[in-house]
């Protein structure tokens, strides 16, 4: 009886806590459901359909996965664009994140005019989106004129296979663009770096740690979760902005006569699968492998295994002894 009432009490508390939880999330759930989740589901349904818009209304003819197969059969540039996007993203995202980290660490130093520099490094974020960017790219302002890209390409092509050369050369070509993309990341890194306790570094210094060691043993482990965050953010930003070739082609297909909305949705879904794959890749690479935590987990696992074995033995023993006892009684 006692145990029952106690159980009821805890569930009541839990219920109340979960109620406040739902209360806090509900505005977001409603907003996301209406304008994000339901449209996403609908667009998946449309991607399986042949959507025709006529004066009488819209007609959806279910065609199974025809749109998806058409993507590979009919759209000539699609696979090529996708591969190029994949390579470019895999190469440029680490560069952006590392650059942002370096700048953030430099800005975190003691120096005059820090706020001024911080502002400047974040400024491109508010410019890069939108039509200004397209104008700038047209004017050739995104590449450093002094940098001799063809020379770099020649050197690279002697060492690397051909499909690798192009994205790397592209990287050098759009160096400024990469600098511009790293505003938010710098801000995030700065926020975390400022939170690191100074006494940690002091302690390390007393123990004879160099700045290099301090970086690898103190700074990096602390900011690791934020590195993952910025990496994911960068992937999404690079994949979703207006300069992306595939986004533009989706937009064009939507209003094209022979393609239509179903085709565009299929493309969008396939594209987002690729983006998810990239994010998953980076997550696996950067997942938090805290040595202490891993050790504790391994220990716990071992304990659990031992406990299980012990229980098994105990069970067997009692069973055996029980049998024996029963046997005794029978006798």
């Amino acid at each position: 009886m006692k145990s029952i009432t106690r159980k009821k009490k805890t569930t009541g508390l839990k219920k109340r806590e979960s109620l406040t939880g739902y209360l806090f999330v509900s505005p977001w759930i409603i907003g996301a459901l209406m304008f994000l989740i339901i449209p996403l589901g609908q667009s998946f349904y449309y991607s399986l359909c042949n959507v025709k818009v006529s004066p009488k209304g819209r007609r959806y003819d279910f065609v199974d996965f025809k749109n998806y197969t058409d993507l590979f059969r009919l759209d000539v540039g699609f696979i090529e664009n996708m591969l190029r996007y994949l390579l470019n993203t895999l190469i440029s995202v680490p560069v952006i994140v590392v650059f942002a980290l370096i700048i953030a660490m430099l800005l975190n130093n003691r120096m005059k005019g820090k706020g001024f520099f911080r502002t400047i490094y974040f400024l491109p974020v508010i410019v890069v989106s939108g039509p200004v960017m397209i104008q700038l790219a047209d004017q050739g302002a995104t590449s450093i004129p002094a940098m001799n890209v063809s020379g770099i390409t020649r050197v690279l092509s002697t060492y690397l296979p051909r499909f690798m050369v192009e994205p790397i050369a592209n990287l050098f070509n759009n160096m400024i663009l990469i600098l511009w993309y790293s505003g938010v990341q710098i801000l995030i890194f700065l926020a975390v770096l400022q939170k690191i306790d100074n006494s940690l570094y002091e302690a390390a210094k007393i123990d004879g740690g160099s700045a290099w060691e301090c970086f690898w043993k103190i700074t990096l482990p602390i900011i690791k979760p934020m590195i993952l965050l910025t990496t994911i953010y960068t992937v999404i930003y690079v994949s979703g902005n207006e300069q992306n070739v595939i986004i533009n082609s989706i937009y064009n297909d939507m209003f094209a006569v022979n393609r239509g909305y179903g085709f565009a949705s299929a493309k969008a879904w396939l594209y987002s699968v690729v983006v998810v794959a990239i994010v998953a890749f980076f997550t696996v690479v950067l997942r938090n492998r805290d040595t202490y935590q891993a050790e504790i987990k391994r220990f716990e696992k071992m304990e659990a295994k031992k406990e299980k074995e012990r229980r098994k033995l105990l069970k067997r023993q009692t069973r055996r002894s029980g049998k024996w006892v029963v046997g005794v009684f029978r006798k």
């Binding site: 996301a32 449209p39 996403l40 999404i236 937009y251 939507m254 909305y261 987002s272």
Partner: peptide, 21 residues
């Protein structure tokens, strides 16, 4: 997880369903 999945998605593609809603 749902939020993260929605994050990966191309905003252009939900334009028409959004209009319908």
């Amino acid at each position: 997880e749902i939020n993260n999945a929605a994050l990966m998605f191309v905003p252009v593609s939900v334009m028409i369903p959004r209009y319908l809603i």
